[in-house]
Amino acid sequence: MRLTMILLNTSLTSKITLFFTAAILSVSALAADFNQTQHLAVQGDAKAQFNLGILYGEGLGVRQDSAKAAEWYKKSADQGIPEAQYNLGVMYLKGEGLRQDYAKAAVWYEKVANQGDAKAQYNLGLMYDAGLGVRQNPETAKEWFGKSCDNGNQDGCNKYQ
């Protein structure tokens, strides 16, 4: 019985050791990825800027900082990265990392909505429906909901009806 307990404990100890070793290696890899991503972002790489926005926004490998996330999303969005444009719209809408500004949220949503993004089309429809940052216009809202629906967003389909 005692021999079995020692073997079980050894197995558990090995598993714990492997777990912590993997965690340490993951953190090291994340730090290296962050440094490389930051280097590319500073050089103007739009995708690296977007990725740096994600890292700061989620606190992955760095202290979570919404203001820095917004800064990097803006740099990436200005270079036409649709995901950055969408995320910047969300941040303006919610006031995360920058001052809440519905009009700027609508501008960024429209940029990416015109590229066929169903979520941005839906959000823009909601903004026109409620008059947030844009002049309230049920017809324009319905158009955006229809486009969102056409691009596979069920919420857009529900609002379109």
Rank of each mutant, 00 (worst) to 15 (best):
115 Q>N: 07
129 D>P: 00
147 K>N: 11
4 T>A: 14
73 Y>G: 03
45 D>R: 04
19 F>C: 02
118 A>P: 03
126 L>N: 12
38 Q>W: 01
84 A>G: 11
125 G>P: 06
66 S>F: 08
154 Q>F: 12
114 N>D: 13
89 G>A: 15
11 S>N: 10
84 A>V: 09
110 E>Q: 15
48 A>C: 07
9 N>L: 12
122 Y>S: 05
33 D>M: 02
151 N>M: 05
110 E>T: 15
65 D>C: 01
42 V>Y: 08
151 N>F: 13
15 K>W: 01
104 K>S: 04
82 P>D: 10
113 A>C: 10
15 K>G: 04
155 D>K: 15
95 G>R: 09
1 M>Q: 13
104 K>A: 03
121 Q>M: 10
16 I>A: 11
94 K>P: 00
125 G>T: 06
104 K>G: 00
77 A>I: 10
142 K>F: 01
22 A>E: 02
102 Y>F: 15
126 L>S: 07
4 T>H: 10
56 Y>G: 02
103 A>M: 03
108 W>I: 08
14 S>R: 11
83 E>T: 09
102 Y>I: 03
132 L>S: 06
22 A>M: 08
44 G>I: 04
55 L>K: 15
144 W>P: 06
129 D>Q: 15
117 D>P: 00
127 M>R: 01
153 N>W: 08
117 D>N: 15
34 F>S: 02
140 T>A: 14
142 K>A: 10
64 Q>D: 04
159 K>G: 04
125 G>K: 07
82 P>C: 00
75 K>P: 04
152 G>Q: 11
31 A>P: 03
107 V>A: 09
113 A>S: 12
130 A>K: 15
45 D>L: 03
6 I>Y: 14
29 A>C: 08
32 A>D: 12
1 M>I: 05
96 E>K: 14
46 A>L: 03
154 Q>N: 09
39 H>N: 14
25 L>Q: 06
141 A>E: 04
1 M>E: 13
106 A>I: 07
81 I>D: 12
32 A>P: 05
78 D>Q: 14
131 G>M: 07
126 L>I: 11
159 K>T: 04
153 N>R: 14
89 G>V: 01
127 M>D: 01
67 A>Y: 01
25 L>V: 09
10 T>I: 12
121 Q>S: 10
129 D>S: 14
39 H>D: 11
159 K>S: 12
1 M>A: 13
76 S>G: 08
153 N>A: 10
20 F>W: 09
15 K>Q: 06
97 G>S: 02
46 A>D: 12
65 D>I: 03
67 A>H: 06
29 A>R: 00
107 V>T: 07
114 N>A: 00
102 Y>V: 02
40 L>S: 14
88 L>Q: 02
38 Q>G: 02
142 K>T: 11
116 G>V: 10
112 V>F: 10
2 R>H: 09
40 L>E: 14
25 L>A: 11
61 G>P: 03
85 Q>T: 07
74 K>A: 11
98 L>C: 08
87 N>C: 07
41 A>Q: 08
68 K>R: 15
18 L>S: 13
146 G>E: 14
42 V>G: 01
45 D>K: 06
46 A>I: 03
111 K>G: 04
6 I>P: 04
11 S>C: 12
80 G>V: 05
6 I>T: 14
145 F>A: 04
112 V>L: 05
159 K>L: 13
84 A>T: 13
